[in-house]
Design a protein around this nucleic acid. Structure first.
Lengths: 104, 104
DNA sequence: TTTCCAATATCGCATATCCGATATAAAAGA
DNA sequence: TCTTTTATATCGGATATGCGATATTGGAAA
């Protein structure tokens, strides 16, 4: 454990959540996470997550021009995200105040 | 990956946060997490986390009667928690609405 | 066409995370 | 005292997580 609260984990949840808000490519996902964490996750981190989400039927490829693949969330993915969000809220219900106060 | 969004991780953060709100023993920590996650984390999960937080100076033992050890957060721990909370908020800033809407 | 670049894909590895099993220790109850 | 129970502690191992390195692929630019 490098320091307290390494904040590792939850990446799959975050990626599904990002794509639910806006259709995204792998690179866009990497960039959005960089904005939030400060560090850009490596390709070896993000693409396997996308592959997993795709194979599970939670996201699907949409029309793309060129080699860029954009993904959108599926109905099944929305259901899954809904469940996951519920769990997240159960776990962190009292983070509400911190989130309201500190993040702008 | 068993299912999407396994919600693994963040345990150290959660434990430090719990103790910051109320002085707690290991068993109390286990019980509080059970309330939130539905499953009671095993001793082999919780006690090493407490040991780590204690050795790092983020929590300290307080007077206990019997064999029960209660911990309280230290000044150093508060600082660490503050930093970690900031990171958490950066990462999940847009969960605010979900937390407000769904958790009661 | 040929070269270069950017997005995607994959593999092996290091580490983190958490659990189950087991041990220890102290108090409570017989 | 002896047994039982409960809280704490520790260890090995299974799995998840994310990274670095590298390959591939298609478009853009020359």
């Amino acid at each position: 454990m490098e320091s307290c609260c390494s904040m590792k984990g939850f990446l799959t949840f975050i990626v599904l959540r990002l794509i639910s808000k806006k259709n995204m490519s792998g690179e866009e996902v990497r960039e959005e996470i960089r904005k939030r964490k400060g560090t850009r996750p490596s390709p070896g981190t993000v693409y396997p997550v996308l592959k997993y989400l795709n194979k599970s039927g939670f996201i699907e490829e949409i029309k793309h021009k060129g080699k860029i693949k954009k993904y959108k969330i599926t109905k099944k993915g929305k259901k899954e995200l809904n469940e996951a969000t519920k769990k997240f809220c159960m776990l962190f219900y009292d983070m509400k105040d911190d989130l309201s106060r500190r993040c702008y």
